[in-house]
Design a protein around this nucleic acid. Structure first.
Length: 205
DNA sequence: TGCCAGGCCCTCTTTAGGGCCTT
């Protein structure tokens, strides 16, 4: 695991699209350094709009729970302070980045942090597996799980474990002792075929 | 009214379509 600290985070939301009015209802994050979780952030938040029965069923987060929670602005202000300028990591990062940027815009803050994506990385280094969902990757790498999915803190922590495991795999296969975020981002940008020849055929991963 | 995300990436592609992944 690289020496540089990264924030691994996950949102639960009212739906798929902030552009359609969907909002964040929970944020979970961990601060990783040297492969260890050294800090955590978790909070439900009240978006001021109803949580649909579908999302309540998916996440277990009810309207009563978000009504009791602090407003999004309050939570996102604290979260913005928590992430600082650390690089960010999320599973399907474009999804979480859209909600992060939308919620930050509502409190007049702008994200400048770089981001890496465990989904894109996993598709590159494990191209042979049938699913790259977070749950499937946790099972594939035999990583510890409490069996809780679709809650922000649990998903952020599992994403962090996955990130650490993938960094170790890439380092091993590439013969490197350290791996920068930039190197991971580059890996995501190379073609699947090239990644396959790098990591599957030559190294038997 | 009815519909409604967006980005990545593969492929029987690029003058496009569809699956995966996130909630």
């Amino acid at each position: 695991m690289g020496k540089f600290p990264v924030i691994v985070f996950d949102f639960e939301t009212t739906g798929l699209s902030p552009g359609r009015g969907d909002r964040a209802i929970e944020i979970g994050a961990v601060l990783l350094q040297d492969g260890q979780i050294i800090d955590r952030f978790q909070s439900l938040m009240n978006p001021g709009i109803p949580v649909s029965p579908f999302i309540q069923g998916l996440t277990g987060i009810s309207n009563a729970m978000v009504r009791r929670a602090p407003r999004c602005a309050e939570v996102m202000t604290a979260f913005a302070d928590f992430i600082g300028q650390h690089p960010l990591v999320a599973h399907n990062a474009t999804f979480d980045a859209r909600f992060l940027d939308a919620e930050l815009a509502r409190i007049d803050r702008i994200r400048t942090n770089e981001m890496a994506c465990t989904l894109l990385t996993a598709r590159r280094i494990y191209p042979h597996i049938s699913s790259h969902k977070l749950e499937a990757l946790i099972r594939y790498k035999k990583l510890h799980s409490e069996g809780v999915f679709h809650r922000a803190a649990a998903d952020a922590e599992m994403t962090a474990r996955l990130w650490v495991a993938m960094i170790e795999d890439v380092k091993k296969l590439a013969g490197l002792s350290e791996l920068s975020l930039e190197a991971i981002q580059k890996l995501c940008r190379i073609s699947k075929a090239r990644a396959q020849s790098l990591f599957t055929q030559e190294h038997g991963l």
